[in-house]
């Protein structure tokens, strides 16, 4: 707030880097110029990410409370997770984030559609790889009787507390997976638009927004790894 509070409105001037030809040269009605339109939309994405942060934040809170109540049961629950699969998935997502960053780099530096589309495709494929591995993990939990409601076979003292861990595990990774699926769909749309030639070095706002979303989903996973997989010891 402080940054823009002292400066009069940003709508004036500053059209230097704006392309003046082509189908995307005119900003929407409410904007003075493309510069302002881009900044506004990206800012809107950041606000959206903050709401997403609070959405996941509620889950992180539930995790914190229950882990403080039942540390032993959480360690026990974590022992049932497959660290190798979790670790591989982390690497997969990190590399997919790199691909997104490279895609935006390509969009901004070259006019070649194919390069942009290929990096996006790589990111989407890695996203799908993540989902497949995650699905396999879920399948294993189901087989091992670690899936509340559908197949839960753990019994004995403290089994209820372990089940709470698994409720949180499925809630957190599930909500994350839903977000990643949306991300994959968005990247798919971006691939189509890239092939149609929608993006130019100075007109790449939707790519930027998709990228921010993708990286955010990556960050959430980066916290899920230590909180879920690395607490058994």
């Amino acid at each position: 707030m402080a940054e823009s509070s002292l400066r009069p409105m940003n709508a004036l001037g500053d059209t230097h880097s704006v392309e003046t030809s082509g189908a995307h040269a005119a900003p929407d009605l409410q904007f003075e110029n493309l510069e302002q339109q881009h900044a506004t939309r990206v800012f809107g994405m950041w606000i959206f990410l903050v709401t997403e942060l609070m959405l996941f934040g509620a889950l992180f809170l539930m995790y914190t409370v229950y882990r403080a109540f039942y540390p032993a049961a959480f360690a026990e629950g974590s022992r049932h997770l497959d660290l190798a699969l979790g670790g591989i998935n982390t690497a997969v997502l990190i590399v997919s984030s790199l691909c997104i960053a490279l895609a935006i780099h390509a969009a901004r530096t070259s006019a070649k559609r194919s390069q942009l589309a290929l990096w996006l495709l790589a990111a989407a494929v890695l996203g799908i790889v993540f989902m497949v591995i995650k699905g396999y993990e879920y399948f294993l939990h189901y087989q091992n009787g670690e899936m509340p409601v559908f197949n839960w076979t753990l019994t004995g003292a403290g089994a209820g507390h372990v089940q709470l861990f698994f409720w949180l595990y499925f809630a957190m990774t599930g909500v994350h997976a839903i977000h990643l699926s949306i991300g994959i769909a968005l990247v798919g749309i971006m691939i189509l638009r890239a092939l149609l030639g929608n993006f130019k070095p100075n007109a790449y706002t939707p790519l930027e927004m998709t990228g921010l979303y993708w990286h955010f989903v990556d960050i959430i996973w980066i916290f899920l790894l230590p909180l879920l997989y690395l607490i058994a010891r």
């Binding site: 707030m1 402080a2 940054e3 823009s4 800012f43 950041w46 606000i47 990410l49 903050v50 942060l53 609070m54 934040g57 509620a58 992180f60 809170l61 914190t64």
Partner: peptide, 18 residues
């Protein structure tokens, strides 16, 4: 700086909740 403030605000609120 505005973007950073937005992010910090989000983290601050998450901190308040927890």
């Amino acid at each position: 700086g505005l973007t950073r403030i937005v992010l910090l605000a989000g983290l601050l609120w998450l901190g308040i909740l927890i």
